[in-house]
Nucleic acid binder design. Structure first.
Length: 295
DNA sequence: CTGTAATCCTGCGAGC
DNA sequence: TGCTCGCAGGATTACA
């Protein structure tokens, strides 16, 4: 579920609720999450104070005041959290009844708790000794943040791949944070068929896609993300952008622009929604260079 | 290189 | 009412 807008919303919600709080204890279920949690870290986290929260792609980093003396002077421990498909990361009152699928609970001062709930357990919560090492590792496998992408680099990246736009947008190494919903919505906004290959795009089309990605994600953040089923923000509220989808999950419904029926095909192993009227599969009907070009 | 399928899980809606 | 099947916001791996 959670793509960049949802993760960003969680971080913004949790920042004022968590910053300055101290972890007084840890509880967790016996069920395994996607990545292992080392028992000795329960004690390491206990007593730590939260100094801030950050997002990178779909990752959440909770900075702790626990120093890491082997690295740079200000290096410190960090919690690295990924919400997977159904993860929920919320701060609640400590006496709030426990829901099912609750896997990690950080007990906090002021009678609060930071809870990680995840029905499908594709998510993860890890304790990392060094924020610097963690940042380095993440940066080495993840592409740039999708806002203010460099136009030249974006065009160059697309020019050298024959993969479909859908596959490229889902590739976290190409651009961090985009998932199935926003890949489809960005392609629609750019009027590009998701099955077009990267190298088939003209410079103008590359620019359109780059701008569309930023616009769609920005709008989604303004609506606090999308809730299809499970997603909630850091205080437990649902998102609102699902009501503004142009094509995602709307197969058969009329395109908001041209009224053609929205189509759904399988691309990159994922359902991909697009408007057959607005998003042409091929550029073969190129306007001859003789006359004026659109735009 | 690209694409496809299976894998990790639980739950829900469609269809019979 | 109940069953099976396919699919779901993610990410990785193996294989054609």
């Amino acid at each position: 579920m959670p793509e960049l807008p949802e993760v960003e919303t969680v971080v913004r919600d949790l920042r004022p609720l968590l910053t300055g709080r101290t972890v007084t204890g840890v509880r967790r279920s016996k069920q395994k999450l996607r990545r292992p949690w080392h028992p000795q870290f329960d004690a390491a986290v206990t007593g730590a104070r939260v100094t801030g929260l950050r997002r990178r792609g779909k990752w959440i980093f909770v900075d702790l005041d626990t120093p890491y003396t082997q690295g740079p002077a200000d290096d410190h421990a960090v919690l690295a959290v990924h919400l997977g498909m159904t993860g929920q990361f919320t701060v609640v009152k400590a006496d709030e009844p426990e829901p099912d699928h609750l896997h990690v609970v950080f007990e906090l001062d002021k009678k609060k708790e930071l809870r990680f709930r995840d029905q499908r357990r594709f998510g993860s919560v890890e304790y990392m000794l060094s924020a610097a090492d963690t940042d380095y590792a993440v940066d080495s496998v993840m592409g740039p943040e999708p806002f203010d992408l460099d136009p030249e680099e974006f065009r160059a990246g697309l020019a050298l791949t024959a993969r479909t736009l859908k596959a490229v947008l889902l590739d976290q190494q190409f651009v961090g944070g985009v998932g199935n919903i926003y890949a489809d919505e960005a392609c629609f906004r750019a009027r590009l068929h998701p099955a077009r290959t990267g190298k088939s795009l003209t410079p103008d089309e590359c620019d359109r896609l780059r701008v569309a990605i930023g616009e769609v994600l920005t709008r989604a953040i303004e609506s606090r993300g999308s809730t299809i089923r499970d997603y909630v923000g850091g205080s437990g509220q649902r998102g609102g952008f699902q009501n503004e989808f142009a094509v995602y999950g709307r197969a058969g419904e009329p395109c908001p622009v041209c009224k053609a029926a929205v189509a759904c095909v399988r691309l990159g192993g994922r359902s991909s929604h697009y408007c057959p009227g607005c998003q042409k599969a091929s550029t073969t009907k190129h306007t001859k260079p003789t006359k004026g070009r659109k735009n």
